[in-house]
């Protein structure tokens, strides 16, 4: 049986939550997502990432829920959602549950949902002050291409300009989107110098577990992780440093 989710009200809306976070219906199309100016101010990186998916035609249809539940290690909207510690709301015949987004992907094409369950919404936390989140991917074509590697980075700066919090999630270099926890740990508490960011990016490359396939070799993917992670970190630090947040 085929169920069309695009007509279930709560799954098709984007609303601000009381805690100033966001609740994005799992069936909201990327096209609709991009039209939400407030969301784009809070999480421009998420919109940017989602707008990498396929082409405008694909974005008229593609949803965050689908991007997640597709279970692709290359899913472009997923690493950033993991790095900003989004949660997902799941509805099933036994009621609703809320899980950390990171626990969802389990293998290529597989997510931790039971057959009676539906992903209803993605919940984004409120954006912290002096924080930023960006996703960069690499593809040979500008569009209509699948990430050879990607890196979704979230950074929060402390009062002294040190990195108070960092998350790095990598795309296309493991069976599921992969947290680069060692690289994250290297950053915490440190001043974000160019050398540090580059070092952390190299650590992330070391954490990647890429394979070689028709799109790229494992070595090249690893190289790209270092480049993309460093560039994403640079961008996040710059953005977070100039305020990076609305009150």
């Amino acid at each position: 049986m085929i169920v069309d989710l695009k007509h279930i009200g709560e799954m098709c809306s984007v609303v601000r939550t009381p805690d100033k976070g966001w609740r994005i219906g799992a069936a909201v199309s990327v096209r609709q997502l991009g039209a939400n100016g407030d969301l784009a101010r809070d999480y421009p990186g998420l919109i940017e990432a989602a707008q990498l998916i396929g082409s405008l035609q694909v974005q008229s249809r593609a949803t965050l829920g689908g991007n997640l539940c597709n279970g692709a290690p290359s899913a472009d909207a997923v690493p950033l959602m993991m790095s900003i510690e989004a949660r997902v709301e799941i509805a099933g015949t036994r009621g609703r549950r809320m899980v950390n987004i990171e626990s969802l992907p389990v293998a290529p094409g597989k997510v931790a949902l039971t057959p009676d369950e539906l992903l209803v919404a993605v919940l984004l936390p409120p954006r912290p002050a002096r924080s930023a989140a960006r996703y960069l991917r690499f593809t040979p074509r500008r569009e209509m291409d699948i990430a050879i590697a990607g890196s979704g980075v979230a950074v929060r700066l402390g009062a002294a300009g040190e990195i108070a919090h960092a998350r790095i999630t990598l795309a296309s270099v493991a069976p599921v989107p992969l947290r680069a926890t060692k690289a994250e740990a290297r950053l915490i508490g440190e001043r974000p110098t160019a050398a540090l960011l580059a070092e952390a990016a190299r650590i992330a490359a070391g954490e990647a577990k890429p394979i070689s396939d028709t799109r790229a070799s494992a070595d090249y993917r690893r190289e790209l992780v270092a480049v993309l992670t460093r560039r994403a970190l640079d961008a996040c630090v710059a953005e977070a440093g100039v305020g990076g947040s609305k009150p």
């Binding site: 040979p140 074509r141 500008r142 569009e143 209509m144 291409d145 699948i146 396939d213 028709t214 799109r215």
Partner: peptide, 16 residues
């Protein structure tokens, strides 16, 4: 053939 689609056989798009 390991890339028998126009996703992985990459013809240039207008942006390329």
């Amino acid at each position: 053939v390991r890339n028998a689609s126009l996703l992985d056989f990459r013809l240039p798009t207008a942006l390329d």
